[in-house]
Design a protein around this nucleic acid. Structure first.
Lengths: 209, 209
DNA sequence: TCATTTACGAATTATTAATATCGTAACTCG
DNA sequence: CGAGTTACGATATTAATAATTCGTAAATGA
């Protein structure tokens, strides 16, 4: 009704009932709007149901729990972050520059969510604190992105080929966490472009050894 | 009465009145014991005062606030962590091994506090969340430790000398945070020796380039 | 059979009042 | 004056209670 975009809930756990059902879409869109405006904790299932003229219990035809809806919305938000970063990465061919853009892009996007969608940031915080499925999925996305870049860099001989691929990429993925982890982001309180670049450079130098 | 060790409060902010006063020591020791047993939040100033037969307001002769006492105890705890790591670092001459020990040592010590002194861990969490002075002091200590190691490594030609010292060391110091930051530690829920070593290796390779 | 609701118990979350705690100022004692 | 206390207000915390909210089961209609 509001936005024409569809929210892909596949990937988030806690789903049930028919996928690709019109109601699921409505629920997710109503939830997204309410979460963004009033926050996850303050919106009740009744709010969501009412917004699309349904009774509360019917939501359970599509989701296991309120948290399951939260996870779906969170996945969508994190998915958007990942897409932005992927796009930025795709816009250059240099593996070194790609890697730098992963770090900088994640920092920027994390900062954007914190500032422009504070309620969403809260939701992301909760998902990290409670270890929801959406987090693992997101981290895996980052790891894959980095792995591809490193593989490309090794093929073009810009990166070394001695160290174990998996271990190295996991470590670098882990390092990006310093700049997108919502709790750290909040504690930092300000953008950290400088620091991000410095850490990215460490990662890059370790590969170009 | 309990422990013969003295707690050095210099470095922590929020202190007032005579330094090196017998009462300050008593307050700090009583506070340390209560914080460790019952937690920062649950111990009241009255508890501390009563333990050494003082009235509550007299504590304010030595500390600006309850938080100031918390900071002092927190500094002491973090100082102990730093000492342990420094000792481990001092036990080898290889800069590479030293650097590895900074990472591994911090991870170990962080994990130890989380498990063996959970109430202290809560206090450390609070200090990070609220950005107490003790945190900046601790991070600066790590940075200094790393800087010395890198300088030594450069002098012995084991490390490269092209990259700016300050920036590089700040970045590496930042990377260690992944394994001692109390919030991340709690969220991880388990020891991460493997990951720590992997990230340490990235730092080391970036220097031996 | 699929879409949906009503009825309802358990668990969680506001609300509020009572209490405790923090921190200051002024006071006492030797 | 240095060591310490008493008295006290503003703020935070706890406890008890009332009200919501989550989530299930069984029921209703198309």
């Amino acid at each position: 009704m509001d936005q024409e975009i569809t929210i892909d809930a596949s990937g988030a756990s806690g789903q049930r009932g028919p996928t690709d059902h019109k109601r699921r879409q409505q629920i997710l869109q109503a939830a997204a709007e309410h979460f963004r405006l009033y926050g996850y904790r303050k919106t009740t299932l009744a709010d969501i149901a009412k917004a699309i003229n349904l009774s509360t219990p019917y939501l359970y035809k599509f989701f296991d729990s309120k948290q399951a809806i939260g996870e779906a919305i969170c996945s969508h938000c994190l998915g958007a972050v990942l897409s932005e970063v992927e796009e930025s990465v795709a816009a250059t061919n240099s593996p070194v520059e790609k890697l730098r853009r992963v770090f900088v892009g994640l920092e920027q996007q994390g900062w954007r969510v914190l500032n422009e969608e504070p309620k969403m940031h809260d939701l992301v915080c909760a998902s990290f604190e409670e270890g929801w499925g959406s987090v693992g999925w997101f981290k895996e996305g980052i790891f894959e992105m980095i792995r591809k870049i490193v593989v490309q860099g090794r093929e073009s001989s810009e990166f070394e080929r001695k160290t174990p691929l998996e271990e190295t990429c996991r470590a670098i993925a882990r390092m990006t966490e310093l700049f997108f982890h919502p709790t750290l982001l909040r504690q930092a309180g300000k953008s950290q472009k400088e620091e991000t670049l410095a850490v990215a450079n460490v990662a890059i130098r370790s590969l170009t050894a």
